[in-house]
Simulated assay, not measured.
Amino acid sequence: MPVNRNALIRYRTIDQCLQNRRRKWTLDDLIAACGDAIYEYQGIDTGVSRRTVQADIEMMRSNKLGYEAPIVVVDKKYYTYSDKNYSITNSPLNQQDMQVLSEVSGLLKQFKGFNHFTDLNEMVSKLEDKIYSQKTQSSPVIDFEKNDNLKGLEWIEVIRKAIVAKKAICITYQSFKAREASTFCFSGYLLKEYRNRWFVLGMQHKRNAHIMTLALDRIQAVEVDEEPYRENRTLDLATYYNDCLGVTKSPGQRDCEVVFWVDAANAPYVITKPLHHTQKVLSEDETGKIFSIKVILNFELERELLGFGAKMRVLGPRILVKQIKAQLVKTLANYENNQE
């Protein structure tokens, strides 16, 4: 059954709304959300009728498009999914989808050999594996790293749209250290993923406005704000994180040379998977190798180095050696205090 672009936008919008279980969705809320989405993607500002959205919901509930979405009405007013993990994006692909995916995969594979398109390799592999598993009705042969319980993913599209449209957003946020949540205006500049967690870099609107990085899994609410968007005029977003592991960084923070020794048994792992793109081998002997990387000192760096345990020894700078030693003393004390 052919489906026009506007209908697909509405289905996707309804699906995103019903996945957001932090809010209760009435039919009027869904109508408004669909109208906003059509205007954003198509530039059409005629609105969406009540009958259209009701028909969309019935279509999503049916198996005509293969969705069979478990949409229910709670308290005779609020729409939601009875299965909190459901999404139409998880639905099996039909033949038309498979054909399109195959064509896209074939197109992308033409670029795999070019250095400028090395980032496409994983995308192509994922597509090919998806196509293979769908065609053969068998298990995938590639298992990519994922975290099904990851929080905050529902904010990615909202924040991305705000960044593209250069709109300020109002964020309700509670860090792990804060006793309670706070709400503030924020201009986002860059979404970044690090180890399956998502972050947004931007500027908080205050008198002492400053650049900050927020973890999406600590966000409780996001709404478009009427305050003027504050343009990024100081940061090179393409290189901002080049001198650090992770995302903990302050503008103006300087990198330094971090030197560390890794024993002979584990040095090959560090060579084949460098800690940072600046990694160099300074020297080696039968006991192991000495490496260096040029990065800023932050929490993620300490955690990465501590993860090697006795297989690694940090040699410099002096302040980092002191911090690593302090962490190891605390670790040893934790074990000694728990002895029976």
Rank of each mutant, 00 (worst) to 15 (best):
R254E: 13
G35I: 07
S82W: 06
E227N: 07
Q137R: 14
S250H: 08
P317R: 02
I293K: 04
N85C: 10
R61S: 12
Y86F: 15
F176V: 11
D243I: 00
T331C: 14
E40L: 15
P317K: 01
S102M: 14
D36V: 02
E103W: 01
A37H: 02
M60Y: 06
K167V: 01
N63W: 07
I14Q: 06
K24H: 08
G66S: 15
E227S: 13
A264L: 11
L191N: 11
R303S: 15
L120M: 12
L201K: 03
L235V: 13
S139A: 14
L120N: 09
S292L: 04
G202S: 09
M59D: 11
A209S: 11
M312D: 05
R23A: 02
N94K: 13
N20A: 06
L120T: 11
T278M: 03
I171S: 01
L191H: 06
L235N: 05
V53Y: 03
A238N: 15
L328K: 10
L275T: 03
A267T: 07
K177F: 09
S139Y: 01
K325I: 09
P317D: 02
Y11E: 08
D36Q: 14
Q42E: 14
C17T: 01
E122C: 08
L216H: 07
D225M: 06
S125M: 11
E286F: 04
D129F: 04
E122S: 11
V329G: 00
R51M: 04
Q204T: 03
R207C: 00
P2A: 13
D28M: 11
F299H: 12
K167A: 10
L8V: 01
W198D: 12
Y269M: 11
L153Q: 09
R50D: 05
C244I: 14
R230A: 00
Q339L: 12
L18N: 02
H205T: 03
V3I: 14
S82N: 09
G35E: 07
V100T: 15
R10T: 08
Y194D: 13
E128H: 04
Y240G: 13
P92L: 15
C256N: 02
K161D: 15
D263M: 04
S283G: 14
V104Q: 05
V262I: 08
K311Y: 01
I9Y: 06
P251F: 02
K126A: 12
